[in-house]
Write a protein that binds this DNA or RNA. Structure first.
Lengths: 149, 149
DNA sequence: GGTTGACCCTGTAAATAGTACAGGGTTTAT
DNA sequence: ATAAACCCTGTACTATTTACAGGGTCAACC
């Protein structure tokens, strides 16, 4: 019987053992086949999927969004259109996240630089990391409301 | 009485009204002063802080991590050393997140490209987004266990 | 002054994501 | 055969966020 046990997958992917059961319950992964004793046996593809989930979660995607991401594939049955729309939206989100993180990194670098030169600052410089969400500026039309499928 | 009400801050920062109470309970923000009737009145700095929290959450930081980030400042009282260590660690985390997101963006671009050309395929290209977490490769010594402060 | 609607307060409960644990079975090794 | 290290299930807990019920306050309008 080829396959990986729960703890093996968990170790390789850096997730908690229990999360695997949770992802199964949430239907992010298919229920893996079992050994005669009832032990789950994960395939290599399962492990890849789980690694992906772990990373995407770490980047702030919800499980629902991750499910969407994983369903993004070019399917013979459907036209590409819905996939394209979703992929482009995700791309925009990812792009914004990168910009925000770069901004944060820049701020951290400045802080580190000051620290190395022992320049004292009592205010918290990192708070000004995000130009995009600075309050006091009215957002025009940029409604960040709940995103639907 | 100068200040912003709960709903004003929530609107400006793009957070749910109720989150403000939660952040107060979790001590990420100081309890704001109240009007005679007991209404919370947030300062501009509160709003900046809340906007920061919102963004950092969106990037996958936990509230505890965000609290750490907000406490990063060069203080007369303490030596810079601990700040330096923390800032550098955060920088590393941020850097890794950027790398992961870039990898994801690349995959999305490939998917979009395929989709635009209507190249039909049934496997899910997005799963290969994260080279950094590819299972099947033994991590040597790189224990990604729980990160401590 | 009274009423209405939009706001605020509190406490509590739900939903999502993840973890922990109890009570028990299985595998492996000695 | 017995101990250690796994696995199973169900359940219950944390963290973060959101929703709701029951009630008070404010501004406007008649």
């Amino acid at each position: 019987m080829e396959g990986l046990t729960r703890s093996e997958v968990a170790k390789q992917c850096g997730v908690n053992i229990e999360s695997l059961r949770y992802y199964e319950k949430r239907r992010l992964i298919d229920p893996p086949p079992r050994t005669p004793a009832g032990y789950r046996m994960y395939s290599r593809e399962d492990a890849v999927k789980i690694g992906f989930i772990k990373n995407a979660r770490n980047l702030g995607f919800t499980l629902n969004e991750i499910n969407d991401l994983m369903k993004l594939r070019v399917d013979r049955k459907k036209s590409c259109d819905s996939v394209l729309v979703k992929a482009r939206n995700k791309r925009k989100e990812v792009d914004q996240k990168i910009r925000d993180l770069k901004s944060m990194r820049k701020t951290l670098d400045q802080l580190i630089g000051k620290c190395e030169k022992s320049v004292l600052t009592n205010d918290c410089p990192i708070l000004s990391s995000f130009e995009s969400a600075k309050p006091g500026k009215k957002l025009q039309g940029g409604d960040h409301g709940p995103q639907k499928d």
